[in-house]
Amino acid sequence: MLIRDGMTRPVVTVAPEMLLPGVASMLRDNRIHQLPVVDGEGVLVGIVTDRDVRDARAVDGFDNRSVQSIMTPNPVSVRETDTLEDALLLLHRRRFGALPVVDTKNRVVGIFARHDCLRVLVEVLGLEQPGSRIELHIDKADDDLCKAVGVLGKLEASLVSAVVTREHTGEGRRVYLRLQTIDPTPARKAMQRSGLRVIEPGD
């Protein structure tokens, strides 16, 4: 998945010359926490957060300073064709609140904020699609995954999502499958027959 599939657009931006009271009300009215600052061509020149504005007000009250005097110039940005992994890791490791998303000419085309991660996660897990969950514990990741997929293929079960993670305690992997059916029993039984360990709900 690419960032353009998960980002928020259109994005609200401000010009470098905008005065702080105007910036404050833009943040408030749009209920956002960051604003990319762009020049006349829409090229990214900085980013300003509600915190920057609050701090400026605390020091001087609201004066006639413009946003470019308090913005972070040349902020870290991502391209719309970068992968979601880029954005997720940047937000996670560098603790940014949001990343401006730019095109090849460095023009702002969107923003990828922390809450966009939640939407991506909900989508990836298929949580808003009707379905039933099957959970497996697998030891030999490759062989067992092949088996599980083979079972689904034979049943013509419609897969909503599949997630494989490390077991938090002990060896092996945990597999979460979401099937588009009210009746996961045939799939569950077929997996057990082919030697897979199906985790019962509540265990």
Binding site: L127, P130, G131, S132, G202
Partner: peptide, 11 residues
């Protein structure tokens, strides 16, 4: 109903 994490439809 049974908790949506464990049972269809997930709501």
């Amino acid at each position: 109903h049974e908790h949506p994490s464990y049972l269809y439809p997930g709501t």
